[in-house]
Nucleic acid binder design. Structure first.
Lengths: 352, 352
DNA sequence: ACCGTTCGTCGAAGCGCTTCGACACGGTCG
DNA sequence: CGACCGTGTCGAAGCGCTTCGACGAACGGT
């Protein structure tokens, strides 16, 4: 009876099919694919021909099992209130693109599951390494990351970075640079319009670092600085701004670190009788695209989302290859002057 | 000499470790985990205890290899110019969350690689199924999807849907509803401010369907309608809008289908001497969040990104389980009236 | 003419899991 | 009281790939 065991209808061709087609051993095909051993040009050609003829693609699961490498990395992003969605998206895209260049794919993990999701993908060997975004100063994922056996890279800076690998824009210096620029133009009273309060409250690093940079720079430059959070939405921005200018009419320089607020701020200022940059100078910390699309075009410190994403992946790949990588990589900010900043009008309330 | 073969330091515990710890066969552990065969309560308890004690997590690759199921789906998003980033993000998040509920993970695939990326992840069995976003009327990924052996679901509608599974908001009826609402208020001249020209040019379904719905509804309601694309950025919006109102000063109803333009439109109209909703009524097609944050709050047909994402995943899971699913699922639009629409001022140039 | 290399290839042993068939138990039923 | 059945468990055969050790052939040095 059943001479042949259940012989499944030939689905995808396997490496064995390729080997047969080329008249070589399975291992030879494998070596052609991986290049880990020398193979004669003739054989290689025959194997490659077979691969093409059969439309062969190695089975990812089998490969992962045998090689103990999934060639997949996890991108963990929390998606919390007040996040700057377009920036995050830019990160994500840069990460995927770069990962592909290293022949890796990207698994998207959110933190609904909390840190558990991170643990799961790492423990099941679904991924080889982990990229964590939107890191808070005291992030619950950080200790977990330390105990994991798989390498990880953070985009953002937690309070304690020992034993970790982090990449980010140097927001401290970014804040500093904004104030320095305004101070250089002659402004003596500036304000930082930051992220929504929730972002500060949960201790998100970049917000705090920028604020600190602004404060220190202001002190160093002999400038008055006030900082206040700013919620999303046209209404909220108008309220915040109105309040600010009422309480501090002398403010002539505004630093905006909140993508969602940039547009409304520029729309609201004229309505409040302040022209940009004539009465109020505005400098933003946001992706370049935003700064260029605004009207007037904004003097800004761009957030190089793309470069940060690329660097993060490169660092992770380094760690996967067992290289030693620096604990903290801080990209230097570079301020681009556009049309939204100028010397304060002498008549303005700023005069000493 | 080498009595024991290279015995690797016990990394992650395997199913064999669990079996040993519980004093049962490997297969028994497997059945406890999958529930595919009856296991006595006593044995199940011992196995689960072992799993917990050892901190066991099944190896994803091994599982995928043996079961021919990766428990991963691909989310393919092109990330093209003019895309509405926040909506896309909402989709993505809904997809990930829902997929997790079905015990699946999500692989993020962009289309830098073109359709090739799709083919790769499907052919390598990295994923069991595919979710394709931002579908164009004549999308190169569609034929590929048809020939793939793995099931797929489209978010959006191509020109020919035979043999596919698609989910989307019924943009045709959405456009219709916007005009109907404005017509009902008494407006006789409306304009559709749409997506950037690039979006129409590449034949993105939702843009065309909305435009068609607007046109047909206008005809049916005896209303004049003009439609024009709108680029991103405050400057572009102002230019487009100024042009429009100059050429068609009688327009008293505006339909905006462009997230990026909503803010600038509301900011620009007053500057052009048109108050909302007094002189011009505005109805948007955008996520609810946007409509609510605007000032005034916008009458809008929300894009139910979350529900579409959820539905898409559910459909895909159905297909994976071999169920028959409908070819096209079109969610009915529901227009929410807020503060941006009103009857046209009798004095306005709208008079018949 | 012989030995040591290097090169190219092969066979086989896993990687950790699922699943199929087999089988040892008590019951049930005729 | 034996044939029969359902329940719970086990062993073994893969799933498709990587990698290690072995080995024949070709080659150079002496």
């Amino acid at each position: 009876m059943s001479g042949a065991r259940r012989r499944p209808p030939p689905g995808q061709p396997t490496i064995a099919d390729v080997a047969r087609h080329a008249g070589v051993a399975v291992s030879t095909v494998s070596y052609v694919l991986s290049g880990k051993r020398a193979i004669s040009e003739a054989t290689r050609a025959r194997v490659l021909a077979g691969i093409r003829a059969l439309g062969y693609h190695p089975h990812a699961g089998a490969r992962a099992l045998a090689s103990r490498r999934a060639n997949v990395i996890a991108l963990v992003l929390p998606l919390r209130a007040g996040m700057q969605v377009p920036v995050v998206m830019q990160f994500a895209m840069a990460v995927v693109t770069t990962a592909r260049r290293f022949d890796h794919d990207v698994l998207l993990v959110t933190s609904d599951e909390g840190p558990a999701g991170l643990r799961r993908v790492a423990a099941t060997a679904l991924v080889d390494g982990v990229l964590v975004m939107d890191v808070e100063l005291d992030d619950p994922r950080v200790p977990l990351l330390r105990e994991l056996t798989r390498p990880g890279v953070l985009i953002g800076l937690p309070a304690d970075t020992t034993g970790l690998t982090c990449v980010d824009l140097d927001f401290h210096r970014a804040g500093w640079a904004c104030v320095a620029h305004l101070a250089g133009l002659g402004h003596r009273h500036v304000a930082l319009l930051g992220a929504p309060a929730a972002v500060y409250d949960r201790g998100t690093g970049f917000a705090h670092r920028t604020r600190a940079g602004v404060a220190e720079s202001a002190a160093a430059h002999g400038v008055d600085a006030v900082a206040l959070p700013c919620e999303e939405g046209a209404v909220a921005v108008r309220r915040t701004l109105t309040d600010l200018l009422q309480r501090h009419p002398e403010v002539s320089g505004l630093i905006v670190q909140n993508e969602a607020a940039v547009g409304p701020v520029l729309a609201t200022l004229p309505a409040l009788g302040r022209r940009v940059p004539r009465d109020v100078s505005v400098v933003a910390v946001c992706p370049d695209r935003f700064a260029e699309q605004a009207s007037p075009m904004l003097t800004a410190v761009p957030v190089p989302a793309e470069e940060i994403g690329t660097r993060a992946v490169a660092l992770l790949m380094g760690k996967l290859d067992g290289e030693a990588v620096p604990e903290v990589t801080l990209l230097p900010p570079r301020l681009t002057v556009r049309d939204s900043t100028a010397a304060p009008a002498p008549s303005a309330g700023a005069g000493r």
